[in-house]
Amino acid sequence: MNTPMFDESVLATIDDSTAAADSTGGRRRPLMFVNAAIHTLDPVIGDLAAADLLLGGDVIVGVGPGLHTAATDDEAIVIDCTGLTIVPAVVDGVAAAGLRTRPADRVGTLTPGNPATFAVVPGNIALEKIIWRPEQAAAIVVDGEIALFNGERRSPAPVEPDRSGPRAVDGPYLGMWIDETGFIHQELTADGRYDETRGGRPHAYQGSFWIDGDRIVYRDDLGFWAYGRFVDDVLHHAGYVFHRR
């Protein structure tokens, strides 16, 4: 498949603008994607046959026809998307069905004020294909940053933690955690295992855990996954609040 290619000089201009802003503490030039078919998934704005999308940092600040006429005034970097389609890269099915009561809750819609996260794709490429084969996209923008350009990643693929077997764990969160009611006692041990006592019933749940920053992910021996978060040395997990003993 031949992915429509952007002029590589556009990417160089974006990088130069970013470097200049970072070195001086100044403002980055805004990005403007022009002449695209845009599926906003916003029930008021709808689909646009030939329109422009203006970014201000990590948010969308304008969408619709005619924005490109002010590109010079805004010092925008213009990216021509003729023949391409812009679609949200995050889709909230409930919002798309019109079941969100407030416009601010319509996550993923290409609406001014929402995060600038979207894909620029050939017209015949479905969004679900981009999920599994992102290189088919001409560009993918995540929170205003171009993560993929001309089918190539601009940053390495994320490294996932090894969850294949036992391993040694070191960190500040090991030990016994007890919820505020005293019903659950959860012990995190240095071999990467957890053991829960519930209501005095020992070994109610057992399994493995992984800690990434302030987030903890559990895989129980029964097969289900769960997660929690540490906030100011307090563990929030499954609606319970735990303190270390």
Rank of each mutant, 00 (worst) to 15 (best):
T181S: 10
T101D: 15
Y240P: 01
R106Y: 09
G200S: 00
E135I: 15
A137P: 02
A139G: 00
D162F: 13
L84K: 04
G83S: 06
V241I: 12
V10L: 15
G192T: 07
P65I: 02
P115S: 09
A20F: 08
P30E: 12
H236P: 01
R28A: 07
T40H: 01
F230V: 09
S23Y: 14
L235D: 05
R244V: 02
H237T: 09
T18K: 15
T18S: 14
I77T: 08
G223C: 10
T40G: 00
S155F: 10
G83V: 03
M32W: 02
V169F: 10
I14R: 00
A204K: 14
D232Y: 07
G151V: 11
P161N: 02
L222A: 06
A21C: 10
L235K: 04
A137V: 10
D195N: 15
R167N: 04
A95L: 06
G98Y: 07
G175E: 04
H243L: 06
G151R: 05
E145N: 11
V90A: 11
L174F: 13
I211C: 13
R219W: 11
P115Y: 03
A12D: 12
D179P: 00
W177M: 06
A137K: 02
P115Q: 07
G165S: 14
H68L: 11
A19E: 07
I131Y: 12
N2A: 13
A37F: 01
A89V: 01
I79A: 13
P4Y: 09
A104E: 15
G171R: 14
G200I: 05
N35M: 11
V34I: 10
I86P: 00
M32L: 14
I130Q: 06
P161K: 00
V107M: 06
T3S: 05
R27D: 12
W210G: 04
G98R: 04
A12L: 15
L41P: 05
P112S: 06
T69I: 03
F242P: 00
D7Q: 13
V44Y: 09
G199C: 12
S208I: 12
G175Y: 06
W132D: 15
V78D: 09
Y240D: 03
G228F: 07
I211F: 11
A137E: 01
A226T: 15
L48K: 02
D73I: 09
A238Q: 08
V91F: 04
A157V: 15
A190E: 13
D42L: 03
A70D: 14
R163L: 12
L222C: 09
A168V: 13
E187C: 11
G123D: 15
G151Y: 09
R198C: 10
F230P: 02
H237V: 01
L174Y: 13
A139W: 04
